[in-house]
Design a protein around this nucleic acid. Structure first.
Lengths: 269, 269
DNA sequence: ACCTGAACACCGTTCAAGT
DNA sequence: ACCTGAACACCGTTCAAGT
């Protein structure tokens, strides 16, 4: 059921261990010699992030401590602080992991065979799936934008965060420009592509955030979790005038097909 | 410019200090005797919340400590722990303060003279104003729903939270039922009033949350802050079919009138 | 009946000493 | 070159001693 990501850890993420090697001559040699070791370090970092995420998920953000991470891993505090230069930097790392997973799911979703509006729904389905399966990671993206976290994150990670956010945004821009090109979406006078993308982002983020963290509330628990994202999206996309409108097409059927075709027992990526 | 709230502190909020008085006979006498004292306690609690909010605003949530609160106030740790039985309980109290302010602003906004959709926009204007003026309080409502905070909050405050949330929801329900009654909004077949209210909530919350905490991002900073909420709302309300639609009415003009008539130099409430 | 602040257990972070 | 864990400063919470 669950799509696995990052089985193979990307070495390019190990910015931290390389940061003090500034002399150009030695750089290459060291890299070549320690390639295997660097892979080991990257794997350890991934392992630490998995443990951290589990701890945050079970005990909540506030109750998560570096002590607990140390005790639940086989590494010492010093080693952990070699990977993350503060607790906040670790959250930043979780945010990066989250963005990478989102991007991966989005790209998978975009392969859905359908019209442009259906593809957009596929992305939203993927976003929802991410939020429900990994609420902790999903929320990390928000908390990573908090001043307190940003101030204490390493510049390398902040940069990586920005890069990935830009990639996600551009990906969504692409959806909209496709729709503009095939004529299923037409900009109203005075409207901008940017603000449409932002509207969709705000709506889907708001829906997910409220469902994930305020699910206990009356108003929300009365709604059908599986369909709220679809219903909200339909209202918004109708408002944008994105054809076919929801009374001319059975998007509830689309929603089911997205689930079946893309996210069921599929060892994608 | 700023509308002031809670100059007069509501005594009913001091649940904490009264909780151990269960014998009915003595209750009344004690209440009467200590009425003045209870007012003093309520005032102190309000004072502590103001200081706490400032600290959270300047140093961030993670960097806020009970020690700093103690040092910045004229009271001892023990006294502060008489008001809030944990750091999380204090966040819960900030959430309550936030909800009360929202409700107060919403009721003021609902006095706007206009059609039902314009009234809805007035509420959204008020919500945005709250989020931008008091980002800390705004975000408290979300963090208060976090399991970690809920587990350590006093039951009294959790109950008050729920009460207020219900009040806000019912208030929004009212807006929609008014629109249904005067015919400017018609439910599509299969649609529910509940899900429309939720959609508006998700959209406006998402918009505010992204603007407040991710304002540093490229995509967002390019947007006109003042108008994003309006633009997003117009897309959504058009999608609901709430008349007059945005191409039949100048809602940008409405937005300006809301600001001028309701939220400029007005010592309301 | 309420206030106080010393006291305690715990957490984030560092760094001298190891390998 | 990297790892370790003792050490330190700080934070959340309590509670015996005051008024």
């Amino acid at each position: 059921m669950t799509i696995r990501h990052f089985n193979k850890v990307d070495q390019s993420e190990m910015s931290f261990f390389c940061k003090n090697r500034s002399t150009k001559e030695s750089k290459c040699i060291i890299r070549r010699v320690s390639a295997k070791r660097q892979q080991a370090i990257a794997d350890r970092e991934a392992e630490l992030l998995v443990i951290a995420e589990q701890l945050v998920a079970t005990e909540g953000f506030a109750n998560f401590t570096m002590d607990k991470l140390t005790n639940n891993s086989s590494y010492s505090k010093g080693t952990i602080y070699n990977h993350f230069n503060s607790k906040e930097d670790l959250i930043s790392a979780l945010c990066i992991k989250s963005l990478k997973k989102e991007l991966c799911l989005f790209k998978h979703a975009a392969t859905f065979a359908g019209n442009s509006r259906e593809k957009c729904l596929a992305i939203l389905y993927a976003y929802q799936k991410h939020a429900f399966e990994d609420p902790t990671l999903f929320m990390c993206v928000l908390s990573a934008k908090t001043p307190a976290v940003m101030e204490k994150s390493s510049p390398e990670r902040l940069e990586r965060q920005e890069e990935l956010t830009k990639e996600v945004t551009q990906f969504c821009d692409g959806l909209f420009t496709d729709a503009l090109e095939d004529g299923s979406l037409v900009l109203k006078p005075g409207a901008e592509l940017n603000s449409l993308v932002f509207a969709m982002w705000a709506m889907s983020f708001g829906t997910n955030a409220l469902m994930v963290s305020a699910g206990a509330l009356d108003t929300i628990s009365r709604l059908d979790n599986r369909l709220a994202q679809l219903d909200n999206a339909n209202l918004l996309l109708d408002g944008m005038g994105w054809h076919p409108l929801s009374d001319q097409w059975n998007y509830r059927d689309t929603w089911g097909r997205i689930e079946q075709q893309l996210f069921t027992n599929n060892p994608a990526t």
